[in-house]
Amino acid sequence: MVLAFLGLVAGPLLALVCAGMGLYLVLTGKTIAGIIFLLVLTQVFIGIGLWAYSARKKYALSQNVE
């Protein structure tokens, strides 16, 4: 259940928030901080979401086989 929440809700939502914050920072003149938000934090949350989704899928497949 936790992996489903991380993969389908928390990861994408946090990535969207970080992307919006990065865009806001770039537009207000804080370019370095905005680029860090866009290139680092957004990608981390996307990676966490994809990892949790694939781990959930593998766990579900292993439970159905047995």
Rank of each mutant, 00 (worst) to 15 (best):
S54Q: 15
G49P: 02
G22D: 08
G49K: 04
F37N: 05
M1I: 07
G34T: 05
L13C: 10
Q63H: 04
L61N: 07
A10N: 02
L14H: 02
V2M: 06
V17R: 06
G49W: 04
F45S: 00
M1N: 13
I48A: 08
L61P: 00
A60P: 01
G20W: 03
K57D: 15
A60R: 12
F45Q: 02
M1S: 15
L41T: 13
I36C: 08
L38V: 07
I48M: 12
R56K: 13
L27W: 07
L25F: 05
G34D: 03
L38I: 10
T42E: 04
L3D: 07
L3C: 07
I35A: 14
L61G: 00
I48R: 01
L23E: 10
L50H: 13
Y59W: 10
L3M: 10
A33M: 08
I46Y: 07
L3H: 05
M21V: 08
R56D: 10
M1W: 05
L16G: 12
Y59I: 07
G11P: 01
L61H: 04
A15P: 03
G29D: 09
L16V: 10
E66N: 14
V17E: 01
L14S: 04
V17W: 04
F37C: 09
A55S: 14
L39H: 03
L6K: 00
V17P: 00
S54W: 11
L27E: 14
A15H: 06
I48S: 02
T42I: 06
A55N: 11
M21N: 06
V44S: 02
M21A: 13
G22T: 06
M21E: 09
S62D: 12
G20S: 02
S54I: 13
C18E: 01
V26L: 11
A10T: 03
L39R: 07
V26R: 01
N64T: 06
V44K: 00
Y24F: 13
L13W: 08
I32L: 13
I32K: 03
K57I: 11
F45N: 07
G47W: 11
V40M: 03
G20M: 04
K57T: 14
W51K: 11
Y59N: 14
L8W: 05
L14W: 05
V40L: 08
L41I: 10
A33K: 00
W51F: 04
V65H: 11
F45E: 01
I36N: 07
G49T: 06
V17T: 04
G20Y: 02
L23T: 11
C18D: 09
